[in-house]
């Protein structure tokens, strides 16, 4: 399987501080890949660098074989890499409709919009309301729906389950599976390691700005180090 995303030795420095020290990872076509790690290890920095929001200090990022390392964020979205970012970053003062419209590249695709509104009935219900008036879970749906409007060839999701009630968390992970079934590979950053490992094919574990462990998700779920550090040692893993 050819890789949709190939990251090689990616480093990111912010001022005097180096936050990512040479990250390498792949997302294969049709796959779900997850990046795990505790707070502050650099997961969001990695996601921002992939979207062109932060500049890489060194290393390369390839999307479908094309080097996108130096491209500005809007050009990266246009090439098919969309993200549902950490903190959602929706446009709170604008309507749900406008948020979705902004996600599209050029003319909004009506069939796709219809598919998204079917996937997230709440967005249809609240279509003309201010996005800021939605609940946290609804805003997360909007955030993912907005990214899907770009018809991405790769979808990045940064902690989509953060701060959501358990029922919504399950819905989000079901959604990840649905998006892949629709043909879009997903790179998922999560702190909810158990759920992420269940849905993903492959997993990377980050610590201190480095990848410290990687492997098939099923194997990592059984790995003693992963269990101890990220699966909280609960008996019902």
């Amino acid at each position: 399987m050819s890789a949709v995303l190939e990251v090689r030795d990616l480093a990111v420095r912010m001022g005097a501080q180096t936050i990512l020290h040479g990250i390498s990872l792949d997302v294969p076509a049709g796959g779900i890949v997850t990046v795990l790690g505790s707070n502050g290890v650099g997961k969001t920095t990695l996601m921002r660098a992939l979207s062109g929001v932060y500049r890489a200090t060194s290393g390369t990022i390839r999307l479908l074989g094309e080097d996108i390392t130096a491209l500005p964020s809007h050009a990266i979205v246009r090439r098919g890499l969309a993200q549902a970012p950490e903190g959602r970053q929706i446009f709170g003062a604008m309507t749900v409709a406008e948020n979705l419209r902004l996600g599209a590249i050029g003319e909004a695709d009506q069939a796709l919009l219809e598919r998204i509104l079917t996937l997230f009935p709440i967005l249809r219900e609240r279509y003309r309301q201010r996005a800021g008036s939605l609940s946290g879970g609804e805003q997360q749906m909007l955030c993912v729906g907005r990214a899907m409007m770009a018809r991405p060839k790769l979808l990045l999701m940064d902690e989509p389950s953060l701060g959501l009630a358990p029922k919504l968390v399950k819905q989000i992970f079901d959604l990840v599976a649905t998006i892949r079934a629709d043909g879009t590979p997903v790179l998922l950053v999560e702190q909810n390691a158990r759920a992420a490992l269940r849905v993903a094919d492959h997993a990377y574990v980050m610590d201190g700005g480095r990848i410290v462990l990687e492997g098939p998700a099923r194997e990592l779920a059984e790995d003693e180090r992963v269990k101890a550090a990220y699966l909280g040692g609960h008996a019902h893993a």
């Binding site: 979207s51 929001v53 964020s73 969309a82 993200q83 446009f91 709170g92 996600g103 907005r146």
Partner: peptide, 22 residues
Amino acid sequence: GLSIRAVAANPLGAQYVGVNVD
């Protein structure tokens, strides 16, 4: 106009949806 309002509302969000901020 939509882009202008998006950047005014949330410049970071605008980057993620592919608005050409410049």
